[in-house]
């Protein structure tokens, strides 16, 4: 089954949004994770934390000028929601590292069977830097990886052991792709859900790590 990139991203963001509970403090990474906010019910009280120094960032501020004083972590001008608060970077990372963030959603270059994450550099090629990703991965109560199941070339991103430099060790709790939902457990990667229109074989063949497949998932996939 081949889905468009947009459809993949929507499926992933929609599924991640189901993990969010009323009252949660959540921090979304740049890119696909940001889109999760679009699928959180409007009437659900959720505090979106932004690493550059805000809780309660809202929609894009389309009237803002280039030197806007309220931006999101991607540097784009945004409006605030009711209950918003501004703070400096030290406070922002007190919230992040201090265990006050319930859920963080991030992308990945690789994630492995031990819950190790690599998402900040490719040696000799792209070295953007870790920004706040290392602190977020270590500090958030629940780390969800939201990403397309494979690279554009079709290479596995879910691997037995990461080969790229790590962002953090043993911190990932859940992986959501357009193909499936995986729980990271001390025993390894447990296949939790198969997304519509994908087969168990397609998932196994595009994953480079052993998957634990509970009986009820295997039965459903028949």
């Amino acid at each position: 089954m081949i889905l468009s990139k947009e459809k993949c991203r929507e499926l992933i963001a929609r599924r991640v949004a189901q993990e969010v509970n009323e009252g949660d403090v959540i921090t979304l990474g740049i890119g696909l994770p940001t889109e999760v906010a679009n699928y959180i019910p409007e009437d659900m009280m959720v505090m979106l934390q932004s690493e550059n120094g805000m809780i309660g960032g809202g929609k894009r501020d389309l009237n803002a000028t280039g030197n806007a004083k309220i931006t999101n972590a991607g540097g784009l001008p945004v409006l605030t929601r009711q209950g918003a608060v501004f703070f400096d970077t030290a406070m922002s990372f007190t919230i992040i590292r201090g265990g006050h963030v319930d859920i963080t959603v991030m992308g990945a270059l690789q994630v492995d069977s031990h819950g190790n994450l690599a998402n900040w550099m490719i040696p000799g090629s792209v070295i953007p830097g870790m920004g706040g990703a290392m602190d977020l991965t270590v500090g958030a109560k629940k780390v969800i990886i939201a990403m397309e199941h494979t690279t554009p070339k079709g290479e596995a991103r879910i691997v037995k052991d990461c080969t790229l430099p790590l962002t953090a060790r043993n911190e990932v709790d859940m992986i959501v792709t357009e193909r499936c939902v995986i729980d990271v457990t001390p025993e390894g990667l447990v296949l939790k859900e198969i997304m519509p229109s994908f087969s168990l074989d397609e998932i196994i063949n595009s994953t480079d790590a052993p998957l634990i497949i509970p009986d009820e998932i295997a039965r459903k996939a028949l």
């Binding site: 932004s50 550059n52 120094g53 805000m54 806007a68 004083k69 309220i70 931006t71 501004f86 703070f87 400096d88 970077t89 030290a90």
Partner: peptide, 11 residues
């Protein structure tokens, strides 16, 4: 310092 301009300036 207004809005999110505080960032690293305070430290």
């Amino acid at each position: 310092l207004d809005g999110t301009t505080r960032n690293f300036n305070t430290a």
